[in-house]
């Protein structure tokens, strides 16, 4: 294969792998923000999910049980955020950062013994069976979690559009006054949305430790949980657009390593940062003072 082909194949492979945790975290953040709260703690949830998923997979021998445990752990930590932010005058941005530090701290504390042993990984679907080129075959070894993430995005989209509960979440996120007038339990709905959102983020963490990069260590997350906020802005709070955002941000993250395969080893940090710069430029073009961003939930503290 020529150089361009190598890069493209490596980028597709990387995008599919790198985008999966982005997809889960941004979907979780999207759900939380649609209910009117912002959860920066998803970074801590991601790391905790990675640790819990890895440890559970190691002890039970089943990576899928690990994924489930990661989701439960994430939901618990997210629930803590949701419950505390329900108290009057607690700032959700600051609490998110506190949850992020607490979550990574707990993960590093209990995760120490699991740095060495190797746990069973999630299987992959060999979608490249039709090709004779080994790079293409390995590129198309896609984790089933990627498809689960796609399914979750469509389900979440349907949930917001077509279900009664989804409508309630949107009402709570768009106008607390309207929700109060309808007699909706605002705090309860936001708590559940934060917990479920963090459950999704926990699955994203399990992907990091059980699929790609596929090991547990303290440098596992490179800030995907924090950057989910930027992805959700990019996706305009639409779960389907989260797929696009995750693929674009994932591909940019994959460009560096794929350039390395043909011997270009400089400048890839700038490629990592490129989608974020694009997000800011898009924001600068589309936002005007006094006019909120289209699609942004009205109750969001970062909307004002």
């Amino acid at each position: 294969m020529d150089a361009a082909g190598t890069i493209i194949v490596a980028m597709i492979a990387g995008a599919l792998r790198v985008s999966t945790p982005f997809l889960f975290v941004s979907l979780g953040e999207c759900l939380t923000e649609r209910a009117g709260r912002i959860n920066l703690g998803n970074e801590g949830v991601l790391v905790l999910g990675a640790m819990v998923g890895y440890a559970t997979s190691y002890h039970t021998g089943s990576p899928w049980v690990g994924v489930l445990a990661a989701a439960v752990a994430g939901a618990l930590l997210g629930g803590l955020h949701g419950a505390i932010c329900a108290l009057a005058r607690v700032n959700d941005v600051a609490m998110g950062i506190a949850i992020m530090l607490a979550g990574t701290g707990i993960a590093f504390f209990f995760g120490k013994p699991y740095v060495q042993p190797s746990a069973p990984h999630l299987p992959t679907l060999p979608l490249g069976f039709w090709s004779d080129v080994p790079q293409v075959r390995s590129a198309l070894d896609v984790s089933p979690l990627f498809f689960l993430g796609l399914l979750a995005a469509f389900l979440l989209h349907w949930f917001f559009r077509a279900t009664r509960v989804g409508l309630r979440v949107r009402i709570v996120g768009d106008s607390a006054d309207a929700a109060r007038a309808l007699g909706l339990g605002i705090d309860r709905i936001r708590l559940l949305a934060t917990a479920c959102g963090s459950g999704l983020a926990g699955i994203g963490g399990a992907f990091l430790s059980l699929s790609y990069p596929g090991s547990w260590n303290e440098g596992l997350s490179s800030g995907q949980g924090l950057m989910a906020v930027a992805l959700v802005v990019f996706a305009r709070w639409n779960p389907l657009h989260c797929i696009t955002a995750a693929l674009i941000f994932g591909a940019a993250g994959a460009l560096g390593p794929s350039l390395q395969t043909i011997g270009v080893s400089k400048g890839y940090y700038l490629f990592y940062a490129a989608p974020y710069v694009v997000t800011l430029i898009v924001l600068a073009i589309t936002v005007r003072p006094g006019r909120a961003l289209r699609g942004m939930p009205g109750e969001l503290s970062i909307g004002r």
Partner: peptide, 16 residues
């Protein structure tokens, strides 16, 4: 100038 939320902007700029 543009009314962009400072929390999002500073978080993204920090990463950049």
């Amino acid at each position: 100038r543009r009314g962009i939320n400072e929390t999002v902007a500073s978080l993204v700029l920090s990463y950049v």
